[in-house]
Design a protein around this nucleic acid. Structure first.
Lengths: 240, 240
DNA sequence: AAGTGGTCTAGACCACGGC
DNA sequence: CCGTGGTCTAGACCACTTC
């Protein structure tokens, strides 16, 4: 009787959901055993292969670990390394109040290098926003971001003053950010930057240039960030 | 007749191997179609589920892409982001000759902060190696690395002068490196560093502190690196 | 309409782990 | 020893893409 998908949700996803629910609610903790394939098959009235599919896929996602001959166990909580976060999220993670001061908001047409990085035409109209980024009212960084003025016409000065760029893109525009490529180096504070970030001239600063890509693989935003390295430093995990 | 695994290699792995071989040899290029599940099942005389397993797992690894209703296609070549590389490998990638000058090689017992990062006892005996790193005879970086003097007694000055630290660990000691956690910030060159790296005093430099972990999850080496940011900069990909 | 991947069944044998 | 995950069969129906 191959009639298990009552509504359209695959059976294996339903099985996963019952497990995920118990993990998220804390009823299952890391190291705890999950039902075996055979148990799940009986409980949900599916075949072994289907129960197996549910567990294998969960293992792939890093939710559980499977040990032959032993069983399936809840994996230690996933730690997100190299996670792409906006300034607001970054500050929230450290329990600091994120704040911004918009120094410049304009449309430019002659930033060819930026346009190239975004994959736009050379003379595309780009919105350029320069912001001083504060954490608990202390200067952290100077961020200049660029995005297509034609594709995001509603990203106005007012909307940016209210919401973070990330949440504006993701909520208002339905743009899901997927990843960012970053280039990191060190630079010295020029007099303008020094004044804004309240450091001596020539002070070493962390410079990051990032191109943010949407889930469709399209370059959406270019950000040039200059960070006070005493207040912010990068944490990265690299793999062999 | 459930007797397909002639030698002990699972059938699905054999199927994967035939596909991988064709990709690596160039007979299959990105975008090319791979046999369908049903074709593979017939060719290799296995059931659909087994052929399917082979393709699904390859998709998970990013080797192929599957499109419902269309077929299975060779994925664009995997680009390794955030890849952990030693200085020697880094230079090789840029077609530069890697060279080193060992400035110091000694055993220390009182670097408690380093010992803590390596998960050793506070007064563990650590081998400390300071090296000036050159690429095509131009100074690139100053690297100081630490590892347990007791666990790696054969990592001598001579062996380091001959081979890279990475290859010594991996080939001579059977230590497979898995990942590294890095902390990156900017700093100014003190007079000693300035002299060695041939930059003005106070020049901004990229500073990286990394803890290298083996596949067993054990911290193996701690490295403090100071890089000339005009000659080297970090490229990172972060994910949402 | 033909072919593809996605889901699923109801069993089977094997290799391994812990008791 | 028994229970676990790992591999596998010989089919099936569905949803989707391509033509």
């Amino acid at each position: 009787m191959p009639e298990n998908r009552q509504n359209g949700t695959p059976a294996y996803k339903k099985i996963q959901a019952t497990i995920l629910r118990r993990i998220e609610s804390g009823r299952l903790k890391p190291g705890d055993a999950v039902e075996s394939e055979r148990e799940l098959a009986k409980i949900h009235e599916v075949s072994l292969m289907t129960a197996r599919h549910a567990l294998s896929a969960l293992e792939q996602e890093g939710v559980v670990q499977r040990r032959r001959g032993a069983g399936t166990f809840v994996a230690p909580p996933k730690i997100h390394f190299n996670k792409l976060m906006g300034f607001t999220e970054l500050m929230a993670q450290r329990n600091l109040m994120a704040n911004s001061k918009i120094l410049l908001f304009s449309v430019v047409e002659n930033e060819q290098d930026v346009a190239a990085r975004l994959g736009c035409l050379n003379h595309a109209r780009l919105t350029k926003v320069e912001r001083l980024r504060l954490g608990s009212d202390e200067p952290f960084a100077l961020e200049t971001c660029y995005f297509s003025a034609d594709e995001y016409p509603n990203l106005t000065r007012a909307s940016l003053a209210r919401d973070s760029l990330f949440s504006s893109l993701e909520n208002d525009y339905g743009i899901q950010l997927a990843y960012a490529d970053e280039e990191v180096d060190a630079t010295a504070a020029d007099s303008m930057t020094a004044h804004l970030l309240q450091v001596p001239r020539g002070h070493p600063l962390l410079r990051m240039r990032q191109v943010l890509y949407s889930t469709k693989g399209k370059a959406a935003v270019y950000v040039l960030g200059i960070y006070r390295s005493d207040r912010y430093n990068l944490m990265i995990r690299r793999f062999r």
